[in-house]
């Protein structure tokens, strides 16, 4: 599957949600779609899923526009943070509808996952707790086997052990049935190791799109005596720095650095990297 957007823009009234987003996702990969609140992630995913049309620019899924094309939408399963299912339906009705809609639906898998998450077939959607609703979303997303499976913060109300269970099941599903997963999340530390690629949106634009291996290559955490660190990071792209008691730590992005004595060079986690790349400076009073 291939998703390609060019100068994608979406405005809601005077508010701009997406501004000039050009991005290409292809292949059977687990992709992390990251960024702060309001960066445009959900808007992008909703246009991709055909929920509404862009204001301008183009988006194509395997060369076809996703809006009003059932050929495209049956290949995409989009599980949102909430409101995925109609409240008056029972769980077994939700699954029956999904089975009709998704050509690759795996009924056995859905049955199995119901047991894993301890959901009962006859329960009505509106009677489910937040955690149970999230579990139902996860079940539909995984059992859909849709060539593009999208999860937008799918774990509201799920406790830490059930989230870990979700990551295990996601990996299992990916291994059994390799396909494109797009995951939007704020709990980056929990799941970052599952990503093969990461795209970071910022203010409606693409800030970067790299493999996680490239991201690890492209940043450095340097620490040591303040004077040594200051010398090493002069004229470099420093995205974060902090010092205390004569020691300094700095994070560099897109820079190479020769190792010198007294300078320790290592890596930081994806979550911190995303924070440093997208954080606004706090104006001092």
């Amino acid at each position: 599957m291939k998703i390609e957007t060019k100068q994608l823009r979406k405005t809601f009234g005077k508010e701009s949600a997406l501004e000039d987003l050009s991005i290409t996702f292809s292949g059977e990969k687990i992709i992390g779609l990251l960024g702060k609140n309001g960066a445009g992630k959900t808007t992008f995913m909703r246009i991709l899923s055909g929920h509404f049309q862009q204001t301008s620019g183009t988006i194509a899924v395997n060369e076809q526009s996703p809006f009003n094309h059932s050929d495209v939408s049956k290949n995409i399963c989009f599980i949102q943070e909430s409101n995925n299912f109609y409240g008056k339906f029972r769980i077994d009705e939700v699954l029956q509808i999904a089975e009709v809609f998704y050509p690759n639906w795996d009924k056995d898998q859905a049955e199995h996952l119901l047991k894993v998450f301890k959901l009962k077939r006859k329960q009505k959607v509106k009677a489910l707790s937040k955690g149970m609703l999230s579990a139902l979303g996860i079940i539909v997303g995984l059992a859909s086997n849709a060539p593009i499976t999208i999860f937008d913060e799918p774990y509201i109300g799920l406790d830490a052990s059930n989230r870990s269970l979700f990551y295990d099941l996601l990996l299992q599903s990916y291994q059994d049935n390799p396909r494109m997963f797009i995951l939007s999340t704020h709990l980056i530390d929990e799941i970052s190791k599952l990503f093969e690629e990461v795209a970071i949106l910022h203010e409606g634009k693409l800030l970067l799109h790299e493999t996680t291996a490239e991201l690890a290559e492209n940043h450095l955490l340097v620490s040591g005596e303040t004077s040594v660190v200051d010398q090493a990071i002069k004229n470099k792209n420093v995205i974060h720095q902090t010092s205390m008691l004569g020691k300094k730590k700095a994070v560099l992005f897109g820079e190479q650095l020769a190792t010198t004595d007294g300078l320790e060079v290592s890596k930081i986690g994806l979550q911190d990297l995303v924070i440093y790349l997208t954080k606004e400076e706090v104006d001092s009073l």
Partner: peptide, 17 residues
């Protein structure tokens, strides 16, 4: 690679690398 991926909850491509 799949066993490594499962054990460490990492992407199979990372294990393969």
């Amino acid at each position: 690679t799949n066993e490594f991926a499962k054990h460490y909850q990492i992407n199979p491509a990372t294990a393969a690398k």
